[in-house]
Design a protein around this nucleic acid. Structure first.
Lengths: 343, 343
DNA sequence: TTCTCTACTGTGAACGCTCACAGAAGCATG
DNA sequence: CATGCTTCTGTGAGCGTTCACAGTAGAGAA
């Protein structure tokens, strides 16, 4: 392990230096660097030894200049970032993507498009080819960014189904509808019949799908959907609290609530407590996400776990496939019911 | 605004295309791109028009190849990432840095060095010159990464003072000691005399400094430091709970606790509640961080706000200055006491 | 005039890499 | 023996930019 670059910033070794050291040509070194096809075992080994000896690291700029690839991908966050950065799921997602990419030696560029200006700048940056593909995270759909990038032919994978783009753009999502079904079935199984719901924003796939699952199971069970039992929130704790108050007012006989996020469920617990209802004795509460909020709540929340680790891994897999030339794909991953104290 | 690149992935325009369009040479276009010195107003304008017309965006790889700069910086996270990603402060930091860099049109590369392997790979990546500088976030000090990067001559700014590296490496930190002083003075001012402390890990600057501030103020007030009133935690909620139990056992007459993080303070509240102590009547509790946990707690926590938005902005400023050739610098930013219900 | 200085412009040569191509072996097939 | 095929290797060209240098033109001074 002789790092010949001892002290004093010297010019880093190039492919020439390695070639000379190994007694071969640039071409052979390049071939070793790119998979080692059509290289004799002897040359292969000589080159590897020379790389170790010189401490050579490929200059990605030079490589990118000729290949046209950048060997990096963007992680793009659109719309109000506060929400994302407070969302524990988002953190798992970001970490998971970074690690999955690191396994392929691909750096992740974090991009925040909060304002319209930033949005334009970033679109420009991306379409100029500075990244090979984009992992897109935007809660609200109808996001113009997805469409712009798709139109520009940039490989793209969204987290959650982007409403309105059909199958033109890849996405990876948890099976929100099925998760909602599981939860509502679970509530029915424990004998509840007056089940309320606090939905997420209805312009998000999660909001729509989870409500759909709720309605399906009620229909399946032959229970008419009572619109007084349906209120909408915005995933915030406060909106959960307000939602529960509204539900209690409109349907005091409610014996369970399915809440579309754990954070909102925390708010629901507060409102129920204030109204003197015991959880789960009087009213059962089911959350969604299995976030830290679920175990921080008292009683601890029964909730639906979304497979965020798998989601990030799949997003990266699908994106790399697409960069490699494959067609867009949609991946739906199963959720899991986590039973705790609130039901 | 005629984007001539309508439909079908065509070769993006180069500096040549712009030059031809503007009727000038490559050199002139390049000069316009890099500040516009020694360019006639007429040429300046012709080039700008040509850039707009062609939709030209500079190829950063080609530029980097010759300048040796990469015009990007790394945001490096070492050690267990779970902690960081759950830490709301960290999120603010990451967001702030990304935005501050975006203002300079510099992308941020997120790098996670969890395992030893990752650490080596990332060091290699960085020292190969793939980023111009590094924003380092590592809680525990004695982190070998900082020293390695410093030795390799990589511009570096740490978040929080890296113990053991003296003034060799730049850092930006909140004035932990002064924040602790403020809090303890505040507790004294409300008449408390038996003030306990739950410190952070004592191999972190935050842990050490906040304890030092506590001791200073007690000494200043002529109160002997009672070692039974000092326990250490690891910034987790559980360790706060355990810490408070230990304090109550060793010093039942304690009338206040200064806790080195809000999360630990939440644990302290739980333990005090269980022991039947009222907050703040029997025991006052002061936290640190002003994280969301502070307002989520009941009673809401009096705490010390760290200026995370300024910290990120300063980290970026110092790093860019250092990349520009300036010497390392240390920046200490003031904290602020936020009074709520727990004191 | 002649010279110098400043403001501006164009050109060749890199930067470090990959790609296409040409060629040299080695071996089997006609 | 020629011909083909496969495996391996070296070489020139070029990716899109900046940089250093060599100019050119015009203004002012000697």
């Amino acid at each position: 392990m002789t790092m010949s670059n001892t002290g004093g910033r010297r010019r880093p070794p190039t492919i020439h230096d390695v070639a000379r050291e190994a007694g071969v040509s640039r071409g052979t070194v390049s071939r070793v660097l790119n998979g080692g096809h059509y290289v004799s075992p002897a040359a292969q080994e000589a080159v590897n030894a020379a790389i170790r000896k010189t401490g050579y690291v490929v200059n990605r700029h030079a490589r990118s200049l000729i290949t046209g690839r950048s060997d990096s991908v963007g992680f793009l966050l659109t719309e109000p970032q506060e929400r994302f950065f407070e969302d524990p799921n988002f953190n798992v997602l970001l970490r998971g993507c970074t690690q999955a990419l690191a396994a392929h030696d691909i750096p992740l560029l974090l991009m925040l498009a909060g304002t319209e200006d930033e949005r334009r700048r970033i679109i420009r940056y991306i379409t100029a080819g500075h990244v090979d593909g984009v992992l897109l995270v935007s809660s609200h759909s109808g996001d113009p960014v997805a469409e712009e990038l798709r139109a520009a032919g940039v490989p793209l994978v969204a987290c959650g189904k982007p409403i309105g783009l059909g199958s033109k753009v890849s996405y990876v999502a948890a099976d929100d509808r099925d998760g909602a079904r599981d939860m509502v079935r679970h509530l029915l199984a424990s004998g509840r019949r007056r089940i309320g719901v606090v939905t997420g924003p209805l312009d998000t796939p999660g909001g729509v799908e989870r409500l759909a699952g709720y309605k399906e199971v009620l229909a399946e069970a032959g229970i008419a959907c009572d619109e007084r039992l349906v209120v909408s929130g915005d995933y915030s704790r406060a909106s959960g609290e307000a939602g529960a108050e509204l539900l209690l007012e409109r349907a005091p006989d409610m014996d369970a609530v399915f809440v579309a996020s754990d954070l909102m469920a925390q708010g629901v617990l507060v409102a129920l407590h204030r109204a003197g209802r015991r959880v789960p004795e009087d009213v059962a509460v089911g959350g969604f996400d299995d976030s830290p909020a679920a175990v921080a709540a008292s009683p601890e929340l029964t909730t639906i776990r979304q497979p965020w680790d798998r989601i990030s891994a799949e997003m990266v897999r699908v994106l790399l496939a697409q960069i490699g030339g494959e067609d867009p794909a949609a991946v739906i991953l199963p959720t899991e019911l986590v039973k705790r104290q609130s039901t």
